[in-house]
């Protein structure tokens, strides 16, 4: 075996070693990604609730902007801390609105608030049925109903 042939063989083996190293790395990466996906599925499966509210805008950050609140069948919204959804906003009333799930759909009803409750930018004067994706404004806080 000449020196040259040996050198080429070694070079090949070296590249093979590196390739194997990256194949192992790829195996790990695949397992990591698979775990992340399954975690996502678990999270999706745990959303057995009837709906959620995504906080789009919240000047006082209470509820925190960007947070998603999972909803029960009956939710009161207002500046009073005893409400299901506590809104810290000076334009919101103590007991501002009710968000309820009746039968198969969501309803929102103003509770005689000073500044009113808005659905998709329009002030409501009676209980209004909501569909997923609708926006509710209480004071300066904007929230979107999601499934």
């Amino acid at each position: 075996m000449t020196g040259d042939a040996l050198r080429i063989l070694l070079l090949g083996a070296q590249l093979g070693f590196l390739l194997l190293l990256y194949l192992i790395l790829f195996g790990f990466a695949r397992s990591l990604v698979r775990d992340l996906r399954s975690a996502e599925h678990a999270q999706l499966a745990s959303r057995t609730g009837i709906g959620r509210l995504a906080v789009l805008e919240s000047p006082e950050d209470e509820p925190p902007q960007g947070r998603t609140i999972s909803l029960g069948p009956i939710n009161s919204i207002g500046r009073n801390v005893n409400n299901t959804i506590y809104v810290e906003d000076e334009f919101a009333s103590a007991n501002h609105a009710m968000l309820t799930f009746r039968g198969r759909s969501w309803f929102v009803e103003d509770q005689g608030s000073t500044n009113g409750t808005l659905v998709n930018g329009h002030r409501i004067d009676r209980p209004v049925a909501l569909s997923y994706g609708d926006e509710i404004s209480v004071g300066r806080v904007r929230m979107r109903l999601e499934r």
Partner: peptide
């Protein structure tokens, strides 16, 4: 893969 990786490293 270690069954291959470690011996390969030793041989090289």
């Amino acid at each position: 893969p270690l069954l291959l990786l470690v011996p390969l490293g030793f041989v090289i």
